[in-house]
Amino acid sequence: MSEYQEESDVGGARSGGRAQTIVGALILLFTIGVFGVVGWDAYNSVDKDKTGVRRILAKRWNDRTLVFPVEGADRAGRRALFDVVILTKNYGWVRGSTTELQKDDRRLSPQEIQEEVLAPQLREGLGSARGLIAVGLASQEGEIEREEQRGSQRAIRTARWVQEALGERIPMWTLNLGRYVDPCADCEDSDTSWQRPFIVIAVRNADEGTHISEALADAMSFKSNLPAPSRYSAFAFAKFTR
């Protein structure tokens, strides 16, 4: 074998080694990319179904108060952060009433509303908000126009209760969602109390000039465990004044 042939063989071996190294690196990068995509999809699938509807994980301020942190943007892209505060399902509005709340089947007295519903943990949590939104809504029974009026009155009543507990230093709005209009075939229609929960929303942060109602509508849309605007007949947002 000539010296030239020996050098060629060595060069070929070196070239082959470099080629194998490059191929191995490409395979490794491809594998990492595939597992990265699969991992991201798995992460998203935890709180989002195939339609894009998400389930928001709740925090607790006490054993009866759930807090859902959400973020939304107005039409100009300005963003706001909210805490949607909802009492657990055994609390809610008395059917047909705009002045009374109930726990299970028992009506709460005005004192119980201040001490049990607007408990110290809720007052503390809401007290640090930049703004508060009192929500009124009604379940699927009755004419839409009448139930929207009921939703408006419940929002005003909620705002008054909250201001009685916290004072008037925090800006307050009302949001009337109207009547529930998306009955579920798999749900128990004999008990519609879950369609009229007690809700107060805290504005935590917002970009300067944010249109709060637009950002809130965006934040609450496509959520499986929040009263999404699409499930109710109205989205009437107004500044609250006594």
Rank of each mutant, 00 (worst) to 15 (best):
S213A: 14
P183L: 06
E164F: 07
G72N: 08
K50F: 03
A13V: 01
T21N: 06
G39R: 04
A202V: 09
T31F: 14
E148M: 08
D104G: 14
A80L: 02
T174K: 01
E115M: 01
S193G: 09
F30T: 14
F198H: 02
S128C: 00
L26C: 13
A234L: 11
Q5T: 13
E164N: 07
D182S: 02
I32G: 11
G127H: 09
T31H: 04
K48P: 01
P227I: 10
G17H: 08
L28S: 15
R204P: 09
T98Y: 06
M1N: 08
G11V: 11
D104H: 14
G142S: 03
W194V: 11
L28Y: 13
K89N: 14
V162F: 07
E112A: 15
E168A: 07
E147Q: 15
T51W: 02
Q5E: 15
A185V: 03
S233F: 01
H211S: 11
L26S: 11
V34G: 08
V162W: 03
A138E: 12
D189A: 08
G125L: 02
G142A: 05
Y4M: 06
A236V: 06
M172I: 01
D49R: 10
A13F: 10
I22M: 09
V162Q: 02
L226D: 06
S193N: 13
D74C: 08
D41R: 15
L226F: 11
G12R: 13
F82L: 07
V53R: 00
P197C: 05
P183Q: 05
V84W: 06
R55F: 05
V23Q: 15
Q114R: 15
C184Y: 00
Q140E: 08
F198C: 03
F240A: 09
Q102C: 09
D63K: 11
R179P: 03
S109M: 09
V34I: 15
